[in-house]
């Protein structure tokens, strides 16, 4: 049996050498979700990283623990990785919108007009939906939410986004997802984000090590 300095390990009664090689079944580590957070009110949602989770609610819990434990935020979104459509990556000086595949004329959408309420209702009735659009401005940085468009498919959403946001440059990469696939934190729950003030022991600033060093040096001259 493994002998450890830690009594808890000893209580596990672990064998010295495993008898068989370890294996794992598919999805042992769950599926994947992509997480975005908002640093402060009014700021755009920014990509912070993926989490593994069996479903969206659990993904949200894991994301909150992973990405807001240390850095305060005012909101969080999680999206199943599979729900995000990704364009090709282009160079830091280019626009990914210039490299979109051309859509056949019949499915190519007209740019949505936000003021056109009647047209909007008709579009939704005809099966169009909202899509969230995220841009990567520079390789190595994080995708950032730029807005929503209305379209009938991810490919069409990218075309609409090109019309609406295509002026922005550079755009190294674009992500789009149906807005319905985004699990968003609720404004009413915003007190869940204020978890840090009483946990001073987690802040570098609460360790006054220099005072103690100076005192030691003064006493040991």
């Amino acid at each position: 049996m493994i002998q450890s300095f830690d009594p808890r390990m000893n209580r596990l009664g672990l064998p010295d050498a495993p008898v068989t090689a370890a294996t794992k079944t598919a999805l042992d580590q769950f599926g994947t979700y992509e997480v975005f957070h908002q640093k402060k009110d009014g700021a755009p949602y920014v990509y912070v990283g993926p989490v593994h989770a069996p479903e969206a609610d659990v993904a949200f819990l894991f994301a909150k623990e992973q990405f807001s434990r240390r850095f305060a935020c005012t909101g969080m979104w999680v999206v199943p990785t599979a729900a995000i459509t990704v364009t090709d990556y282009v160079g830091d000086q280019e626009s990914a919108y210039d490299f979109l595949p051309l859509l056949p004329k019949s499915v190519a959408p007209a740019p949505g007009n936000a003021d056109d309420t009647a047209g909007e209702a008709a579009a939704y009735a005809a099966g169009e939906e909202d899509y969230d659009i995220f841009h990567l401005k520079k390789r190595g940085k994080a995708h950032q939410h730029v807005g929503k468009v209305r379209a009938s498919s991810p490919a069409a959403a990218l075309q609409v986004a090109k019309a609406v946001f295509g002026e922005q440059r550079p755009v190294v990469n674009v992500w789009t997802t149906r807005s319905a696939d985004v699990l968003r934190s609720d404004e009413e729950d915003r007190d869940i984000w204020s978890t840090t003030p009483e946990k001073k022991y987690r802040d570098a600033i609460s360790y006054k090590v220099q005072d103690r060093i100076e005192k030691f040096k003064a006493e040991n001259k």
């Binding site: 769950f30 994947t32 992509e34 990509y47 990283g49």
Partner: peptide, 14 residues
């Protein structure tokens, strides 16, 4: 026990 029939693995994006 937490897995659902809908759980789907896709390589993380970034």
């Amino acid at each position: 026990a937490l897995l659902t029939p809908k759980t789907q693995y896709v390589r993380p994006l970034a």
